[in-house]
Nucleic acid binder design. Structure first.
Lengths: 206, 206
DNA sequence: GCTAGACGTTACCGATCGGTAACATACAGG
DNA sequence: CCTGTATGTTACCGATCGGTAACGTCTAGC
């Protein structure tokens, strides 16, 4: 069986894995396999094999596969929050700079050759409406959108709610479109976003 | 087991099903179950049960489950094409009216209470990159985007490619956001689209 | 050095999966 | 009426699934 682990999405290979505790290895591998192949096609066997451990150890850390999925989704959400906080920390008190930095980050995401859509959105597609992981996903998306609203508000853009929705939806649409063969539309979204940011600020009555 | 069939997304109930040939029943049911629960969680047993038939009959019409998935995706794509053609037929030679009609259609889709994202995009999330159904999905999305470009071109909008990408991505983003709890962002997208259509036309040098 | 707890190994469980063989039935067209 | 074709029924296949029991091993901390 193939034991190739983890794309170059900022993560290390098999060598760095071996020295980490099993739970961490499992989450690292789950993150990779779930994203690349989806939730259902990836068996716990495949995960523990790639994580260089075994089923018993996995089930000592996670009550069930669904519980692992919740942990996987929580991991993604908290990583997204960290990116957001890093952007905030890099430009304290400068909402305009934060917006620019956010678009730079978007550009990185969309040009990543391993991009296969938003992992959280993809997970939502595969999960029943009552799956506990969905609440995490929905809360994260709302948080993200609200952060954009506050940023546009602080930067004194006109109609911040509408603008936040627009850039939020453009970004979401671009990510989902990448794996639907529409690389064309997505390639233009960064310049669209920059256009929106450049054209809008301080239109609040001067 | 529950035999509730087909949401009100324009399709009939169990009574209308019974009089149709098995292959049609199977596709009708697959369309419903695949969309509501995803591709992998729906077994062929569940499909044939809901379609009031049996596995043997299904496998006489489809070589495999993957083959059924291809037929499911083809069905969705051709239905989408039919909507597009109907819009064209309703406003022959009037691209602006077609654009308006398209946005009206978008509004219907986004306000449908059973909306769970674009069925084709959802399917793409669940399919390997080399699955034969993916080519169908990608071709459809490209076709759809190209149709928008031609419409904006014919209606003499400025920068039709960019505008087509923008409305395309907003629509895609809205659909995927609906099931991620972001009903807020999606609710504004129709007025955004109408704004884009109203503000832009004939900006081609007047 | 001993012990406790984390980890690994093997083997297994019942359920379900996609898919098929063999056979019975219904029915339309000659 | 007879025959061919589509459909339905039952039973089954091997594979894989998520999950567990029992037991052996390793090592950190006292």
């Amino acid at each position: 069986m193939n034991t190739t682990l983890l794309n170059e999405n900022g993560k290390a290979g098999i060598a760095a894995l071996a020295s980490r505790p099993p739970r961490e290895r499992i989450l690292l591998v789950a993150r990779d396999l779930f994203y690349r192949h989806g939730l259902h096609p990836v068996s716990v066997e495949a995960i523990v094999d790639a994580a260089l451990t075994n089923k018993m150890t996995l089930y000592r850390h996670f009550k069930s596969k669904d519980d692992l999925i919740v942990a996987y989704v929580n991991q993604l959400a908290s990583e997204g929050d960290i990116v957001w906080e890093r952007i905030a920390a890099d430009s304290p008190g400068d909402p305009q700079k934060r917006l620019d930095a956010w678009v730079d980050h978007i550009e990185d995401v969309l040009t990543n050759k391993y991009e296969r859509g938003c992992a959280l959105a993809n997970a939502a597609v595969e999960l029943d409406p009552d799956h506990p992981a969905r609440a995490v996903i929905e809360a994260y998306k709302r948080r993200k959108r609200e952060g954009l609203v506050q940023l546009f508000k602080a930067a004194r853009y006109r109609d911040p709610e509408r603008l936040a929705d627009e850039v939020f939806l453009l970004f979401e649409g671009a990510r989902i479109s990448i794996q639907c063969g529409g690389k064309g539309p997505a390639s233009r979204v960064v310049s669209m976003l920059r256009g929106l940011l450049a054209a809008g600020p301080r239109r609040t009555r001067g």
